[in-house]
Design a protein around this nucleic acid. Structure first.
Lengths: 211, 211
DNA sequence: GATTAAAAGAGGAAAAACCCTTTTTTAGCT
DNA sequence: AGCTAAAAAAGGGTTTTTCCTCTTTTAATC
């Protein structure tokens, strides 16, 4: 019997997933949490750990990426399956880099979830075609170091994909407009675009931002 | 006892909602579907219809908006509660215009869902503050008649959705940059946006341009 | 041919965006 | 404490965008 923990801020979904996992042969849910902070506290508090954690990527307080890094660092044997609503390229890459073994989209079917659990136990990973494609793309662009953006760059990018002026973005991010200039130039460089329209279109095309 | 149908492409969530609804006094789920097409087929096939349909907005095959229009047309007595992950202004408006009685965000709590069901039966609608605000805004902008674009405006819009400068667009369209200024201002006005980023995002959201 | 509405274009000014280089601040490390 | 790299900020100049108002051109109509 393998033990599974479910971490998702969307309570209804966390419970639904837990029920589903319990219905699988050889798998049982030991607990569910609603934030990254919570799962870390749970792990720290007990000696027995789950074999697999089903971890949502987008959560308040401590998100899936940060939580995964932390857990992988302290409990390397616990396998983590990342779950996300949106298939944003950056989320996938960051999550896998943080140490997640598998990446699932949230609108999975029952059988897919079971397959992912079994294969994560046996082979150590489970990837859908879509995730594989992202990985290949990322490798291809590796030398340009385009793929992985820093926390603050992502934050800026999301602001840039609105009608805000740079001055307004600076205020939102509590930074000087001159610093924003820097972020913009860095992304122009990484994405090889020449103005903000190009930036926005690149972000949308590469699923870094969803309108 | 009121009967409820749940329509959501995300099977797990559909089931979870169904379980939740079944736990409410006076409410019972008659069936769940995974696409708009499916619910319509179900309705057409039987003589007894649910009192309320919990309808996801974003679904493949036939989305919530299209399905709602269709159902409202053929079965005007069936009340529809729209459910969406994102609170996009356009989704809200289109869904309500299509005939949905209520609009909920997906990360609702148990009690909110029950309240929405009860109030939809009794008062005929249920709106959160957020949705009300969107409605008021929309009414305010109604007279501006944004809808119909001219040939040349569409052509300009497509150029505007690239990284070209206005000067370059002018050259492509064999017009003076000053004329381009005019097209831009006209669209800013029609779409009620304040800069080119807003224009591009509006175009993409409203499927006037596909990246 | 005169009338009229729409399309095209002009002038000018202020704001925002872009593009360099250079300096200061912050944070991690031995 | 001192070193170092990254992040933040500044300086300063050019270009582009935005926002007015106003004029000319075009094309269709009576």
């Amino acid at each position: 019997m393998y033990y599974v923990a479910v971490v998702d801020d969307f309570q209804l979904l966390a419970q639904a997933m837990a029920t589903l996992v319990d219905s699988f042969k050889n798998f049982q849910v030991c607990y569910t949490c609603n934030t990254g902070k919570e799962i870390i506290e749970k792990l720290d508090a007990s000696l027995k750990h789950p074999d697999i954690i089903l971890m949502d990527v987008n959560m308040p307080v401590l998100n899936g990426i940060q939580a995964t890094k932390h857990i992988k660092n302290r409990y390397p044997n616990v396998k983590i399956i990342a779950i996300s609503v949106e298939n944003k390229k950056n989320d996938v890459l960051q999550m896998l880099e943080a140490g997640a073994k598998s990446f699932l989209l949230k609108n999975i079917e029952k059988s897919t979830l079971e397959k992912a659990l079994i294969q994560t136990i046996n082979k150590g990973y489970y990837h859908t075609e879509h995730v594989s494609k992202i990985l290949v793309d990322a490798l291809h662009n590796q030398e340009k170091n385009k793929s992985i953006l820093k926390e603050r760059e992502i934050e800026f990018l999301n602001h840039a994909c609105t009608d805000k002026t740079y001055k307004e973005i600076a205020a939102k991010m509590f930074l000087s407009p001159k610093t924003i200039d820097g972020y913009r130039d860095a992304l122009f460089n990484k994405f090889n675009v020449r103005n903000r329209i190009g930036l926005v279109l690149y972000a949308i095309k590469n699923k870094l931002f969803t309108p």
